[in-house]
């Protein structure tokens, strides 16, 4: 038995049986076929393989780069020896003979999702916070090859240095990266963190691919464990809407990444129900504080345990 299928999450398709595209099944027939199909994998007709040497003859530059790639392992001691290119591109004998590009599969030029299925044929058991990698980024609207260098110039298929990861994400998520140029932000620019510290591009159980900790707790608590609680006296928005209800985690012009320029506005926008008709949480305003007095302009000067208190109902200590 070869060692390659024992790589983390790798299950190579057997030779001569390249992964077939998903079979379209009408909904009505689907149910009746469900059980049978669970135990049956349709076989595609075997085609001729050309071998890596043949590929290298024309695609020398790619071949040279490939020698430094982690995918080079495919060449070693497996039934795919000397056929590494064809694990992704499919049998290439006909293409090699004719030079016709229509006769070879190029995953990067396939339609949405199809290119990813080529990667997932081997990598779908790779563990991720959502269980395993089920599809490309954003439900295969962004293919694996957008972030991973398949032919590679490094041992890793993606440069995982924080600075490189941030640069990679910023090419699409410009809006987020722009916010990190604001003065009050997490330390991404200094290389202390990367986008993947909070988000997992392969998907998680939380919105925006946010990481979770301790099974079902928000990923923010991985570093901010002192805000975890449970507190004797909770501050409801922290639990109901999360840190983002007051903070802008990607960066802000306001101190402490707050979403408002002064703390009193941050607080009063919720603690300001006028009449019962509002139908929202938050109660009435703290009625006796005169915010014209400078002492009451920053609520957290007194309400120091604003994330929740173990001691005091008014979050004073």
């Amino acid at each position: 038995m070869s060692w390659l299928p024992r790589l983390p999450g790798l299950t190579l398709p057997p030779q001569g049986r390249h992964p077939a595209p998903p079979s379209p099944v009408p909904g009505t027939v689907a149910a009746s076929l469900f059980l049978a199909a669970t135990f049956f994998v349709p076989l595609a007709p075997a085609q001729e393989y050309a071998g890596t040497e043949m590929c290298a003859a024309c695609h020398e530059e790619i071949f040279t780069k490939f020698q430094k790639s982690a995918h080079k392992r495919i060449e070693r001691k497996t039934e795919w020896t000397d056929q590494a290119c064809e694990t992704c591109h499919g049998p290439g004998a006909e293409h090699a003979a004719s030079g016709d590009i229509a006769l070879i599969k190029n995953p990067s030029k396939l339609d949405a999702g199809a290119g990813d299925r080529s990667c997932l044929a081997c990598h779908q058991n790779q563990p991720s916070p959502a269980g395993r990698i089920r599809n490309g980024h954003a439900h295969s609207q962004v293919s694996c090859a957008e972030c991973h260098t398949v032919h590679g110039t490094r041992e890793e298929l993606v440069d995982r240095r924080p600075v490189s990861v941030n640069k990679q994400c910023a090419t699409c998520h410009m809006d987020a990266w722009v916010q990190f140029q604001r003065p009050h932000t997490h330390r991404l620019a200094q290389g202390a963190m990367s986008c993947t510290g909070c988000h997992n591009p392969h998907g998680t159980a939380a919105p925006s691919n946010l990481n979770l900790v301790a099974a079902n707790e928000p990923g923010c608590l991985k570093c901010h464990g002192d805000k975890r609680g449970p507190f004797t006296f909770e501050h409801a928005p922290v639990r109901l809407e999360g840190c983002q209800s007051c903070h802008e985690p990607h960066g802000s012009a306001n101190p402490r990444m707050l979403t408002r320029h002064e703390v009193r506005f941050q607080c009063l926008e919720c603690h300001s129900n006028i009449g019962a008709s509002a139908g929202v949480l938050g109660g009435v305003a703290p009625a006796f504080h005169d915010t014209r007095n400078p002492r009451f302009r920053n609520c957290t000067v007194c309400h120091v345990k604003i994330h929740g208190s173990h001691i005091n109902r008014a979050l004073l200590r």
């Binding site: 379209p24 099944v25 469900f34 994998v41 959502a130 089920r134 099974a215 449970p230 173990h310």
Partner: peptide, 28 residues
């Protein structure tokens, strides 16, 4: 204490499914 169970599968070529159960009981 917390427990986590995640099941993912593709029982057929035309169906992927996932099931998650996450439980925790923090106390202070």
């Amino acid at each position: 204490i917390y427990s986590k169970g995640i099941l993912t599968g593709n029982p057929t070529n035309w169906l992927d499914m996932n099931l998650q159960f996450l439980y925790s009981q923090p106390q202070t």
